[in-house]
Computed example of a mutant assay.
Amino acid sequence: MAAITNPRVPFTNSISGGMSLGRKMVVKGGISPGSNGFSLDLVCGSDEIAMHFHIRFDELHIVRNSLISGNWGAEERSGGMPLIKGEPFEAQFECKEDCFRVELNGKHFCNYTHRTPYHKITHVKGDGDVLINQITFEG
């Protein structure tokens, strides 16, 4: 099981072996009490974002989107805000055939339909006001 431990935010780390069907990325961390939000991105090479997962506390939404050929797609904002400032969190992204299945703190949050082939994903990026303790890849 590959792991990224205590990365300094912002960070970009390669995903050993990339993403594949059934593979899970588990992110464990903490959210500061004054956080405006943070993002986790699954990136293809240097210029495409397969999945942008942006926690926005000021809007009480978690925005999902993709950046393909320099253009952002349609934002997905359903699901509200299950994360709480000042508390630890766990986010799990499971690569399914047609989507990423996302769980937050052990509860299903959303499915994000693949807009780009998942096998092209090479890196994970993190940015914003968050402390990441560990990112693991299973499967």
Rank of each mutant, 00 (worst) to 15 (best):
H123S: 10
G106L: 03
A2S: 15
R8H: 13
W72Q: 04
N65P: 08
K96M: 14
I49N: 10
Y112H: 01
R8L: 15
G79N: 02
G79S: 02
E94P: 06
V26Y: 09
S16R: 15
S14Y: 14
R56V: 10
N111G: 00
A3K: 14
M51E: 06
E94C: 11
V27K: 00
G29S: 07
D41H: 09
P117M: 04
Y112P: 01
S16M: 12
L104C: 04
I4N: 03
M81V: 08
F11C: 02
R8W: 05
E76G: 09
G45C: 06
T5C: 12
G86V: 02
S78M: 11
E59Y: 10
L67T: 15
K125Y: 00
S39E: 14
H108W: 07
G70A: 14
G80P: 10
S16C: 11
H114C: 01
N133L: 05
W72R: 04
T122W: 09
F53G: 01
V26L: 14
R77E: 00
I135A: 04
F11Y: 03
V130S: 02
H54D: 13
S39M: 13
T116F: 15
H61Y: 09
F100A: 06
P88K: 00
G79V: 07
T113E: 13
S66R: 01
C110F: 11
P117S: 02
I15P: 00
V9D: 00
V130T: 05
V43G: 01
P33M: 05
R23S: 05
F109R: 00
E103Q: 12
S66I: 05
K24A: 10
A74P: 09
F57Q: 00
C99S: 13
E87H: 11
L104A: 06
M19C: 13
G37C: 12
E76Y: 07
F38I: 08
N13I: 04
P10Q: 02
L40F: 10
E138R: 11
V43Y: 00
T12V: 10
M1I: 13
M25Y: 08
G139C: 08
K120A: 03
H52I: 06
L42R: 04
L131G: 14
D127I: 07
A2V: 13
E90D: 01
N65E: 04
G79I: 08
C99R: 09
T136R: 10
P117T: 03
L131P: 11
Y112A: 01
L104T: 03
M81S: 06
D58L: 13
M81P: 07
R56L: 12
F38V: 08
Y112V: 00
H61V: 15
P7F: 08
I49S: 10
C95P: 10
Q92W: 01
I121T: 01
T116D: 11
E87F: 10
I121E: 02
P117Q: 05
V9E: 01
N36Q: 14
I68M: 12
T116P: 01
Q92M: 12
D98C: 06
L21W: 05
N111H: 08
P7E: 07
G29K: 06
T116E: 13
E138S: 13
